[in-house]
Amino acid sequence: MAVIDLANPTRFLTLVNRVLPWLIGATALVFAYGLYRVAGAPDDYQQGATVKIMYLHVPGAWLGMMGWGVMTVAALGTLVWRHPLADVAGKAAAPIGAGFTFICLATGMLWGRPMWGTYWVWDARLTSVLVLFLLYLGMLALYWTAEDPNRSARAAAILALVGAVNIPIIKFSVDWWNTLHQPASVVRMGGAAIDASILVPLLIMALAFTLLFFTLHFAAMRNEILRRRVRSMRMMQAREVPV
């Protein structure tokens, strides 16, 4: 099937309905295997088992950023190619991306308690994720405020692109702000190469999260298409009654 065929929402729906069960199955399998590998991964000599929060925390951050990436591509699709599904894809990605970002923040806070003795420190990485989360919330508010999906599409696309341009700048500013105020006193992972016993489960979990993202994204796109159909059918219903 050529990509252009997918421009047709009906064809896209048939494709989603065919692919979704497989995606769900694959997600479940990879998750199961990933969790099994995580259970077998070594504990940290200082942090003990709490280090395993990382296997949720880090993929959450990655997928949170990828969500904005999907929205950026969708925004280009809306503004440049005027692809009929682009806005649907962008709108469906926003709450999912926000969800993964939230997972990253929540697990970060839970992880911070034993590590730092407090739920939150204004660590540069965590703070960048927080700003990303705020951007997501703004995007959701934008979709929420507009009653007409056609009108919100372009506004959301522009916001997504502006966000994409700004995210690196924000990241840089936060790093600068943080080092200015708080010399690297915070324990950070990384530095030396990560051992394979940690890296492999992490990558498997990242794959599981990615599959989950696309499963949710496809399902959300399907729902959004159906929601728009319901909307236009109801508008037709209003037209049929004597004006």
Partner: peptide, 12 residues
């Protein structure tokens, strides 16, 4: 009467 459940946004 037939439009009772419809959002008023859809009305002409």
């Amino acid at each position: 009467a037939q439009l009772s459940d419809l959002p008023a946004a859809y009305l002409s």
